[in-house]
């Protein structure tokens, strides 16, 4: 109300009936709920396994009578699993902030719009928990949470597809640009898939790890390559909406498919070979995801009013949380390559 002081004579404030504002802002409430759910997940995931002493580093030592770890486990599966959890964390975090921003824009018009916030927080907690878990052997809680995330993403995809279809013009470019982003919920599914894979890899035979009956390294490599291509399509759609006005906008539609192709080829190579190029490609994609945030921050600054107008430009400008989903997938690719490299012929 200090506006009244300077230079607006002759206007008295229209007095509104004073109401005691005790209510919590819905966004704050949502954040609290999500954080609470995340903390619960964290402890739940821990309790399921940590029945005794903590493990001794990465190498599993059976302590007689005090632990119920499974016997199996080597550094390869555990370390690859941790990588997969890193990947899943990054994707879940990307989904958390991206869906938070986009659904804030949509003002949580439908209650279902709260779902991805909670789901991705829980997934994030589970993945972070797994990332710090050097043990082999799956956590059933984490596995269940990741599977739930995968399903939630699919349901979200269905919702978004339905939302786009019922808009004026149906499945048109216009609605793909400005309707609910069809591809976005799939990022949560990808986080779930990588998280589930992490738990399964933990459980797998370290000498010949398998996923769904296939060699784990190869299966993961091909799957990750596919996910990279899918995410490229999403980035391509949005960068097409932005008319590729900056040449840098071509990077996320060219580098990831290239890296994905190399990754997929790696799956076909004989076991145990090093995959330097494929790894370099994954690191490059990973770095691109992080650099993308900086580019998007520059994009926000280029909008009218720049960062001072953040309430508009954070939402209307290039989405800051989106690019790291590429980094997440690249980490998944690195896990796959690790498994491939350590696979015994």
């Amino acid at each position: 109300m200090e506006a009244r002081g300077n230079g607006l004579p002759g206007v008295r404030p229209r007095t509104a009936p004073v109401r005691f504002e005790a209510e919590v802002h819905p966004v704050v409430a949502l954040a609290l709920v999500a954080a609470g759910a995340g903390v619960l997940t964290w402890f739940a995931a821990g309790r399921s396994k940590r029945l005794g002493l903590t493990p001794h580093g990465g190498r599993q030592v059976r302590v007689k009578g005090s632990r119920r770890y499974r016997e199996r486990g080597t550094e390869v599966t555990a370390s690859a699993a941790q990588r997969l959890n890193h990947a899943s964390s990054m994707l879940a975090a990307s989904v958390l902030f991206d869906s938070g921003l986009e659904h804030y824009r949509g003002q949580f018009f439908n209650r279902a719009m709260y779902t991805p916030i909670i789901a991705s927080t829980v997934t994030l907690a589970s993945s972070l928990h797994g990332a710090g878990d050097t043990d082999p052997g799956r956590s059933h809680v984490r596995h269940a949470v990741q599977a739930m995330a995968g399903v939630t993403g699919l349901v979200g995809f269905g919702f978004h597809a339905w939302n786009v279809g019922k808009r004026e013009g149906g499945y048109s470019w216009q609605n793909l640009f400005y309707g609910a982003p069809i591809g976005a919920p799939m990022a949560l599914t990808l986080a779930g898939i990588l998280g589930v894979a992490a738990e399964r890899v933990r459980d797998a035979d370290p000498d010949a790890p398998e996923l769904a009956g296939l060699p784990a390294g190869g299966a993961l490599a091909v799957a990750t390559a596919g996910m990279l291509v899918g995410t490229t399509l999403e980035a391509g759609l949005l960068h097409f909406r932005g008319a590729f006005q900056n040449p840098a906008m071509f990077v996320p539609v060219t580098l990831p498919p290239l890296a994905a192709a190399i990754l997929a080829t790696a799956a076909a190579a004989e076991p145990g070979r090093p995959h330097k190029t494929a790894k370099a490609g994954m690191w490059a994609v990973s770095a691109m995801g992080v650099l993308g945030v900086a580019f998007h921050a520059y994009g926000v600054a280029r909008m009218m009013g720049g960062w001072d107008n953040w309430r508009q430009n954070m939402i209307d400008g290039p989405p800051l949380p989106a690019p790291p989903s590429f980094s997440g997938l690249a980490l998944g690719g690195l896990a796959a390559l690790e498994l491939l490299e350590h696979r015994r012929p």
């Binding site: 909406r241 932005g242 006005q245 280029r302 909008m303 107008n309 209307d316």
Partner: peptide, 29 residues
Amino acid sequence: RGAEAMGIDWTPTPLATVSAPRGDSPPCV
């Protein structure tokens, strides 16, 4: 909505205001 109800085509209008940055022009707010 009206056009679809009347069974005729419609389209977003081609406009001379940018939907993405162009040089020193920020996108329309």
